[in-house]
Design a protein around this nucleic acid. Sequence first.
DNA 1: AGTTATATGGGATGGAGTCTCAGATGGCAA
DNA 2: TTGCCATCTGAGACTCCATCCCATATAACT
Lengths: 224, 224
Amino acid sequence: MSRASARDRLADAAFALFAEFGYEQTTVEEIAERAGVGRSSFFRYYRSKEDVIFPDHERLRQQVAARLATSNQATAITAVSDAVRLVMLYYVSEGERARHRYRLTSTIPALRDREIASVAAYQRLFREFIDGWIDEGARSALRAELMAATVVAAHNHVLRRYLRDECADPVSEVDAALDQAIALFGVDPRAVSTGTTVLAFETPERPEEVFAALRRVLEPRAKT
Amino acid sequence: MSRASARDRLADAAFALFAEFGYEQTTVEEIAERAGVGRSSFFRYYRSKEDVIFPDHERLRQQVAARLATSNQATAITAVSDAVRLVMLYYVSEGERARHRYRLTSTIPALRDREIASVAAYQRLFREFIDGWIDEGARSALRAELMAATVVAAHNHVLRRYLRDECADPVSEVDAALDQAIALFGVDPRAVSTGTTVLAFETPERPEEVFAALRRVLEPRAKT
DNA sequence: AGTTATATGGGATGGAGTCTCAGATGGCAA
DNA sequence: TTGCCATCTGAGACTCCATCCCATATAACT
C-alpha cells in the first residue's frame, strides 16, 4: 500500500504517537492501526513495544563484534577505536531519529533501562576483546574490566553531548575522548592509527540522508 | 499467621518457586498463594514481579547517596571507598540470598537487565559526586564520567567473583580493586584512609546471620 | 491451473499490573 | 460494651502486552 515497508511504517507511526501522546498512553494496537497493518504484524516485526524504538541494536552490536573479530594483538587499539567510531557514526547517520529516541529514553524509565541494558552488551563485547588482545604483559581481568568501562563511558559521554546538541563534531570528539580513556592505562598512544578511516556499515536510512549527515559531520574536519 | 512478615514471606516464596520452576513459569498468583496472601497484596509490597528479587535496592542506593552526601573535597576519596564498601558489605550480609539472586540474574534476561539498570543508577550517583568533589584542578566532565565508570566496574568485578565463590575476602579485594581504579587517574592514594572502618546500615536479615557473615569475611584480615 | 512458500490478520489465551470496593482487624474513646 | 476511626487485606474487574493458532491472501514457480 505505501512505498515504505511495513516495518518502517510501524517505526514511524510509533515515534509519531509516542511524541504526541506519550509512551504509556500509546497502545500497540494504535501503532499498528496508524501503520495500516494488523496488530499481529507489529509483533512480527518487533519483539516488543520497546523494541520499535531500537530497531537495529542487535545488528549494530553484531557489526561491532565483527569489527573486533577481524583484529589481532598488533591492531587491537585501532580495532577498539574503529568499533567505537562505528557506533557513533551509526547514531550520526540516523539524524533526527536518534534525537527523538534520546528524548524518549531520557523520560521513560522502561526505555532508559532498555537502552542501558544494550550499552552493557557493548561493554561486555569490549571487555572480552580487551581481555584477549590488549595488556598481554599487564594482563588482568580487572584491568580489562576497567578499560572496557572507560571505553564505553567515553563513547557515551560524547554521544550524549551530541544528542543534546552540545557538540558539533562528535566523531573527532569521540576519538579524543577515547584517546584520553586509553591513555589512563598507559597504552602507547602511537599504536592508534591516524588519518582517514573508511568504515562499511548498514543502515535503514536512505543513502543520500546518510551522506548528508556524514558531510555535516566531516566538513569541519576537512577544513584543517 | 506466620512469624515472618508478609513481605518477607513473599520474597522467600518467590525465590523458592523461581528456583524450582523457573522465573517465567512462576506466576505472581502462585507466589502469593505460597506466601499465604492474596494476589493484590503482592503488588502492595512489590511494584512488580521483578522487584521481589531486589527488595532493597532503592534503600541501598539511598544509603550510598547519604554516605556521599556527608563528604567534602578533602574526604572525597574516602567517601567513595566507603560507599563502595557499603554496597559490597550489603551483599555479603545477605549471604546465600545474594548468590541465589546472582544465579537468577545470570540466566533470566529480564532480571539481568533490571540489575544492570540499578548498577547504572549507582554509576550516576558516583559520577555526580566525583564531578563535584574530585579533580578540582583537572576538572572535566569526561574525567568524572570515566572515573565513575571504573569505580563501579571495579566493584562489580569483585562482587561477581565473590558471588561465584572465586574470592574469599571480598572486602579487602574490593578495596584493592578500587585503589587500582583510582590510581589510574593519578589521584594521591595517600588520600585514602586506612585502618578499621565502621559502617552502619540496615538489612532485613537477622542480626546473628549478619554477624556470622561479617565474621567470616573479616577473620582472614584479622590474622594479619 | 495447480502447488508450494511466505506474508498477513483475526481471534483466543494467559499473565502482569492497576484500580475499586467491601469486609476484616485493631486500637481508642465514650 | 458500643461506636468510631484508621489501616490492612482480598476479591474481582479491567487494560494491555505478548504469544499462539489458524484461515486466508498473495506471489512465484511448474
